[in-house]
C-alpha cells in the first residue's frame, strides 16, 4: 500500500482517463485509510523540509510554574514542544494554547512568530473555547470510530459534522452507509461502537494538524464523493484545506482541536438515527451517529451521566446536510403544537 505520491497520481490519472473513478471506488475502507494516512505523512514531511533555514522566535510563556521566555524554532516548534520544556503535567493536561491572549491555537500547530503563550486546560475559569474544541474533536473521533467499527463488506462514507453545539447534548457525525439501507442498530451494536470509541481514546494518539492545497485534498479523499464535493467550497477562501489526523484517520475540519485523544475520558455512543433526504437531493439518506463524552479527569456521578446519555439518545436537532429545510425535531413538534393549541 505504501506507494510514493507520484505513482498514486499516475494511477489516478490513468483511471480518470479511462473510466472515471470506478476502480478507485473498489478501494476497501481500510486501504483508503492507509492511503490517506500515507499521503498525509508525506505532505507533512515535505512541508517540514520546505522550512529551510531555521530561524528562532521568542515565546513568552505565562502561567505555572512561572512566567519565562523560551527560544523556539520558527515554523517547526509547536506549543506542545513548549509544554515539553515544563513538565509532563503540562503536556497531558493542556488542551489548547492561547496565543497573544486572543488567538486559540492547536497544541500541534507550528508557531509562526514571536508571541505570548498560555496553556488552556479543561478546568480554567473561562473554558468555552476549550469545550468547543473538545466537542469538535469528539465528533471527529466519532468519524474515526465509525470507519473502523464496521466489517470490510460495509462501505462507510463519512459525510460531515456540524459545528460544536454543546447545549444540544450530543456530538454528531453524519455518515453514509450505502450498503445498509435499512439499519436499526441493536443495543449490542451500540455497545460495540462505544467500545471501539474507547479503544481509540486509549491509544492516546496526538491529534495532528496540516494545511494542504485543494488538489492534494481532492487526491486524498478521492474514494469519498461527499468530501470531494465539499472540498472546493472549503478551499474557496484561500485555496487551503485544514486536515486533522488521529492515529491513521484523516478528516477535514476547521479546528482547533484538543491535544490528544487521551484527553477524552468517559464516552458513550448513544444513538444512530436515520436522516431522510429531500426529494430533489441526490443523496437519499444518511445516518446520524450521536454520542456524549467528558474530558479525562472529570468525575461525574453515574446517575448524572445517565441523564446525559438518555438525553443524547434523542435525535439531535442540528441542521441536516441533505435536507436543510426540514426541522429534524418533527417528533417533538406535534406535542408542542398541541400544547399551544
Amino acid at each position: 500500500m505504501k506507494l510514493p505520491l507520484t505513482q498514486f497520481l499516475q494511477l489516478n490519472l490513468r483511471q480518470s482517463n479511462i473510466k472515471g473513478f470506478t476502480s478507485i471506488r473498489c478501494l476497501s475502507t481500510q486501504e483508503a485509510i492507509e492511503r490517506r494516512h500515507h499521503l498525509f505523512t508525506l505532505e507533512k514531511k515535505r512541508q517540514l523540509e520546505n522550512v529551510g533555514r531555521i530561524e528562532k522566535i521568542e515565546v513568552r510563556y505565562k502561567g505555572i510554574p512561572k512566567d519565562c521566555t523560551l527560544v523556539m524554532n520558527k515554523d517547526i516548534s509547536t506549543p506542545y514542544d513548549c509544554a515539553r520544556h515544563f513538565s509532563e503535567w503540562h503536556m497531558e493536561s493542556s488542551a489548547l494554547a492561547l496565543i497573544d491572549g486572543s488567538m486559540y491555537w492547536d497544541m500541534h500547530r507550528p508557531l509562526t512568530e514571536s508571541c505570548t503563550l498560555e496553556f488552556q486546560t479543561f478546568n480554567i475559569s473561562e473554558p468555552q473555547q476549550v469545550n468547543k474544541a473538545f466537542w469538535r474533536t469528539c465528533s471527529f473521533m466519532l468519524g474515526a470510530c465509525a470507519t473502523v467499527a464496521f466489517k470490510d463488506k460495509v462501505t462507510v462514507k463519512l459525510h460531515s459534522f456540524p459545528g460544536p453545539d454543546i447545549r444540544s447534548g450530543s456530538f454528531i457525525y453524519d455518515v453514509d452507509l450505502p450498503t445498509l439501507p435499512d439499519w436499526k442498530p441493536t443495543p449490542q451494536e451500540m455497545h460495540t461502537l462505544s467500545a471501539e470509541y474507547v479503544k481509540l481514546t486509549r491509544q492516546n494518539d496526538l491529534i495532528e494538524r496540516l494545511e494542504v492545497g485543494q488538489e492534494l485534498a481532492l487526491e486524498m479523499f478521492v474514494d469519498n464523493e461527499h468530501k470531494t464535493k465539499q472540498i472546493p467550497d472549503i478551499a474557496r477562501t484561500n485555496g487551503k484545506v485544514t486536515l486533522y489526523k488521529v492515529g491513521k484517520h484523516v478528516d477535514i475540519s476547521k479546528g482547533p482541536m484538543i491535544s490528544s485523544s487521551g484527553q477524552i475520558g468517559k464516552v458513550f455512543v448513544s444513538a444512530v438515527h436515520k436522516l431522510l433526504g429531500s426529494p430533489e437531493s441526490d443523496l437519499k439518506q444518511l445516518y446520524r451517529f450521536q454520542g456524549v463524552a467528558l474530558p479525562t479527569g472529570v468525575i461525574l456521578n453515574h446517575f448524572a451521566f445517565s441523564i446525559l446519555t438518555e438525553r443524547a439518545k434523542k435525535l439531535n436537532s442540528a441542521r441536516s446536510p441533505i435536507n436543510p429545510f426540514v426541522d429534524t425535531r418533527e417528533s417533538v413538534e406535534p406535542q408542542s403544537m398541541q400544547a399551544h393549541a
Partner: peptide, 16 residues
Amino acid sequence: QYSNRHLIQNVLLDAA
C-alpha cells in the same frame, strides 16, 4: 472550580 457553570459537565447538565 467544580461549580463554574462554564465547565463542560455543568453546561451539559444545565441544558438537560
